[in-house]
């Protein structure tokens, strides 16, 4: 499936929730969704568009907001969705994807550990790479070491 077809299918279902659609490569689609609709959006991707695999959860610290980037792969149709979610700085919370993909919790652990984004609905959110009693989130830009 080509990136444009994926974007078409997503737009039909979610209408104006999807914004800033672009195509970095032929089979890759990059899009933004609001953080409230991420869980139904990902469920739709998995059930209707056969995205079996969540590759990566990245958290980026932009000057005005946080951003979570999800790389979602479809093995069957050989395309990839790069999903961006903007998260406000004063309330770094987003729904956890572990109900959709079981393997999501490990990736989210890391994002929580490094960037301090709380994943609501995560089965066991805790520090994984850093000590339990560590106070800072080292990948934030205001962390100076």
């Amino acid at each position: 499936m080509k990136g444009t077809e994926v974007a078409q299918a997503v737009k039909e279902k979610f209408k104006d929730l999807v914004s800033n659609v672009s195509f970095p490569r032929d089979r890759v689609v990059r899009l933004y969704v609001p953080r409230e609709s991420i869980l139904p959006f990902c469920k739709f991707l998995r059930d209707e568009l056969s995205c079996e695999h969540l590759s990566l959860v990245t958290a980026v610290d932009w000057p005005e907001n946080f951003e979570c980037v999800y790389h979602i792969t479809s093995y069957l149709e050989e395309y990839m969705v790069e999903l961006h979610v903007k998260i406000p700085k004063d309330d770094p919370k987003v729904d956890s994807l572990s109900p959709v993909w079981k393997g999501a919790d490990f990736a989210e652990w890391e994002a929580y550990d490094m960037m301090g984004i709380t994943f609501v609905g995560h089965p066991d959110l805790r520090r994984i790479l850093l000590p339990e009693d560590y106070l800072y989130y080292p990948l934030r830009k205001d962390f100076k070491g």
């Binding site: 590759s55 990245t58 610290d61 919790d105 490990f106 990948l139």
Partner: peptide, 27 residues
């Protein structure tokens, strides 16, 4: 998977590494 964000500086704004073993350890 390596994800890079550049902001027009000499160094990248964000580099993210997807480690396969990290996910495999989940299993």
């Amino acid at each position: 998977l390596i994800y890079i964000v550049g902001q027009g500086e000499t160094s990248p704004y964000r580099v993210k590494v997807r480690s396969p073993v990290f996910a495999n350890l989940r299993a």
